[in-house]
């Protein structure tokens, strides 16, 4: 049974002209447990919306999203929040670290809404990403690469089955991007989490054995907007 199974997923927004603008129209997508898959797509191709639908941040108009055998599409927002808190890790392009919180607190927050705060595990994750000496640093006291590593540790904090990564290296320089991608993949593998990463960076995509083009996956992306 796939970890993630998406079928006939549609999401549209109200267009300025009064009509609707379909952003995501994915007839079929599957991801098995512990797999690492990259989705390629240019800006505006609906990558973030697709990930947000899987994460339960957005509710689809129609279709089905089964995560770990559980249907997300028909669930209330609070139930989707609960699943996200316990099953999904999310790495953002801009890291989205909370600026008033230390590295350790950011990681602790990643688990607080799900399995509960585990200080030792949070420290172990930060050690794993090479930040054991920066536990009490605020994001602004960290370099961009270090902030990204905190974001990686936070995404794994709730022991997720699936990690979603939205252009995770988009804000990093070449060297940091390579190291970061390697870290994300290794950390997911070590923690038994599947990885679904979206990027338009060919170098990043080249690191993956399995790459799918969003333009082919998402019928909405094929249409002129």
């Amino acid at each position: 049974m796939p970890l993630l199974e998406v079928s006939n997923l549609k999401k549209s927004y109200a267009a300025p002209d009064g009509g609707t603008h379909v952003v995501v129209d994915v007839p079929d997508f599957k991801l098995v447990a512990q797999a690492q898959v990259a989705l390629s797509g240019e800006s505006g191709s609906g990558k973030t919306t697709f990930l947000n639908l899987i994460a339960g941040i957005l509710a689809p108009d129609t279709g089905s999203i089964k995560l770990n055998g559980q249907e997300l599409a028909g669930l209330r927002e609070s139930a989707r929040d609960r699943i996200r808190a316990t099953t999904i890790g999310y790495i953002f392009q801009t890291f989205n670290l909370l600026q008033g919180y230390t590295a350790l607190e950011n990681v602790l927050l990643g688990m607080s809404f799900g399995p509960g705060a585990d200080r030792e595990f949070a420290k172990a994750l930060l050690k794993r990403v090479g930040l054991e000496a920066k536990l009490n640093h605020l994001p602004r006291q960290l370099s961009t690469g270090q902030q990204q590593r905190v974001a990686v540790a936070r995404a794994l904090a709730n022991r997720p089955k699936l990690v979603l990564a939205d252009e995770p290296t988009g804000n990093l320089d070449h060297t940091n991007a390579g190291e970061s991608l390697k870290l994300i993949r290794e950390a997911c593998r070590e923690n038994g989490a599947a990885l679904l990463l979206v990027s338009h960076d060919r170098e990043v995509l080249g690191q993956f054995e399995s790459v799918q083009e969003l333009a082919k996956l998402n019928r909405a992306a094929m249409q002129p907007t």
């Binding site: 941040i57 609070s78 929040d81 609960r82 808190a85 316990t86 953002f92 008033g100 607080s112 809404f113």
Partner: peptide, 16 residues
């Protein structure tokens, strides 16, 4: 708003 959105993305419920 951004901090709230981040907390929500981490799984915080709206009522939290």
């Amino acid at each position: 708003r951004r901090d709230i959105a981040i907390l929500r993305a981490l799984g915080a419920r709206a009522h939290t």
